[in-house]
Deep mutational scan, measured.
Amino acid sequence: TETYTFDSEDQAEEFAQRAQKKGYTVEKRKENGKFKVRVE
């Protein structure tokens, strides 16, 4: 499980979609103005 942090929602969304296409489970959340994407 890895967590990635992005400054913009667009970046987080793009990353999450790519990860989902590769078959990963993706969980997105906003925390302290940053966008976190957890991938497993």
Rank of each mutant, 00 (worst) to 15 (best):
T1E: 09
T1L: 10
T1W: 15
T1Y: 14
T1F: 14
T1M: 11
T1H: 12
T1V: 14
T1Q: 10
E2G: 14
E2D: 11
E2T: 14
E2N: 14
E2W: 15
E2V: 15
T3G: 04
T3D: 09
T3W: 15
T3Y: 11
T3S: 06
T3L: 08
T3P: 04
T3I: 12
Y4W: 11
Y4A: 03
Y4E: 02
Y4S: 02
Y4V: 04
Y4H: 06
Y4N: 02
Y4G: 01
T5P: 02
T5A: 06
T5N: 04
T5E: 12
T5S: 09
T5M: 08
F6K: 00
F6N: 00
F6M: 01
F6S: 00
F6C: 08
F6Y: 02
F6H: 00
F6W: 02
F6T: 00
F6A: 00
F6G: 00
D7A: 07
D7K: 04
D7C: 14
D7V: 06
D7T: 07
D7N: 07
D7G: 05
S8F: 10
S8R: 09
S8C: 10
S8M: 07
S8W: 07
S8H: 09
S8Y: 10
S8L: 08
S8D: 12
E9K: 05
E9D: 08
E9Q: 06
E9T: 03
E9G: 04
E9L: 08
D10P: 06
D10G: 08
D10T: 10
D10W: 12
D10Y: 09
D10R: 09
D10A: 12
D10K: 10
D10S: 10
D10L: 09
D10C: 08
D10H: 09
D10F: 09
D10I: 11
Q11N: 05
Q11M: 10
Q11L: 11
Q11R: 08
Q11K: 10
Q11P: 03
Q11V: 09
Q11S: 08
A12H: 01
A12Q: 04
A12I: 01
A12W: 04
A12S: 04
A12E: 00
A12V: 02
A12R: 01
E13M: 07
E13N: 13
E13K: 05
E13I: 08
E13G: 04
E13H: 06
E13D: 14
E14G: 05
E14T: 07
E14N: 07
E14C: 13
E14M: 09
E14V: 07
E14A: 12
E14D: 10
E14H: 08
E14Y: 08
E14S: 09
E14F: 08
F15E: 01
F15G: 00
F15T: 01
F15Q: 01
F15M: 03
F15V: 02
F15P: 00
F15K: 01
F15Y: 04
F15L: 03
A16M: 13
A16K: 05
A16R: 05
A16G: 04
A16P: 00
A16C: 11
A16V: 08
A16Y: 09
A16S: 07
Q17T: 11
Q17E: 11
Q17Y: 09
Q17P: 00
Q17H: 09
Q17W: 09
Q17G: 06
Q17S: 10
R18F: 10
R18W: 15
R18L: 13
R18Y: 11
R18E: 12
R18N: 11
R18T: 09
R18C: 15
R18D: 10
A19P: 00
A19D: 01
A19Y: 13
A19F: 12
A19I: 09
A19V: 10
A19H: 08
A19L: 14
Q20T: 11
Q20I: 14
Q20L: 14
Q20G: 06
Q20H: 08
Q20R: 14
Q20N: 07
Q20Y: 09
Q20A: 13
Q20M: 14
Q20C: 12
K21R: 11
K21G: 09
K21E: 13
K21L: 13
K21A: 13
K21H: 08
K21Q: 12
K21M: 12
K21F: 08
K22G: 10
K22R: 12
K22E: 13
K22N: 13
K22I: 08
K22W: 13
K22V: 07
K22P: 04
G23M: 02
G23E: 02
G23P: 01
G23I: 01
G23N: 03
G23D: 02
G23Q: 02
G23F: 03
G23S: 02
G23A: 02
G23R: 02
Y24W: 09
Y24G: 04
Y24C: 12
Y24I: 05
Y24L: 11
Y24Q: 05
Y24R: 05
Y24F: 12
Y24V: 04
T25F: 12
T25S: 10
T25W: 12
T25Y: 12
T25K: 14
T25R: 12
T25Q: 11
T25L: 12
T25N: 11
T25I: 13
T25V: 12
T25A: 10
V26N: 01
V26C: 08
V26E: 02
V26F: 04
V26S: 03
V26R: 01
V26T: 09
V26Q: 02
V26M: 02
V26H: 02
V26P: 03
V26Y: 04
E27S: 13
E27R: 07
E27H: 13
E27P: 01
E27C: 14
E27N: 09
E27I: 13
E27L: 10
E27V: 13
E27K: 08
E27Q: 11
E27A: 08
K28G: 03
K28A: 07
K28V: 15
K28Q: 11
K28R: 11
R29E: 09
R29Y: 15
R29K: 11
R29A: 11
R29C: 14
R29L: 15
R29M: 14
R29I: 15
K30W: 14
K30Y: 15
K30V: 13
K30D: 05
K30C: 12
K30I: 13
K30S: 10
K30N: 11
K30R: 11
K30E: 13
K30P: 06
K30L: 12
E31N: 03
E31K: 04
E31R: 03
E31H: 06
E31P: 01
E31I: 08
E31A: 05
E31V: 09
E31L: 05
E31M: 05
N32K: 07
N32T: 03
N32V: 03
N32P: 02
N32I: 02
G33W: 02
G33T: 04
G33H: 04
G33C: 06
G33I: 02
G33D: 07
G33L: 03
K34L: 10
K34I: 10
K34D: 03
K34W: 07
K34F: 10
K34E: 05
K34Y: 10
K34Q: 10
K34R: 09
K34V: 11
F35L: 03
F35D: 00
F35G: 00
F35I: 07
F35A: 00
F35N: 01
F35P: 00
F35S: 02
F35W: 15
F35H: 04
F35Q: 01
K36Q: 13
K36H: 14
K36M: 15
K36Y: 15
K36N: 07
K36I: 15
K36E: 10
K36V: 15
K36W: 11
K36T: 14
K36D: 04
V37T: 01
V37R: 00
V37K: 00
V37E: 00
V37Q: 00
V37D: 00
V37C: 02
V37P: 00
V37H: 00
V37N: 01
V37F: 01
R38I: 15
R38P: 00
R38W: 09
R38G: 03
R38C: 10
R38S: 11
R38N: 06
R38Y: 14
R38K: 11
R38Q: 09
R38V: 14
V39G: 01
V39Q: 02
V39F: 04
V39L: 11
V39D: 01
V39T: 04
V39N: 01
V39E: 00
V39C: 04
V39A: 02
V39S: 01
V39K: 01
E40K: 13
E40A: 13
E40W: 15
E40I: 15
E40C: 14
E40L: 15
E40V: 15
E40H: 14
E40G: 12
E40P: 04
E40S: 15
E40R: 13
E40F: 15
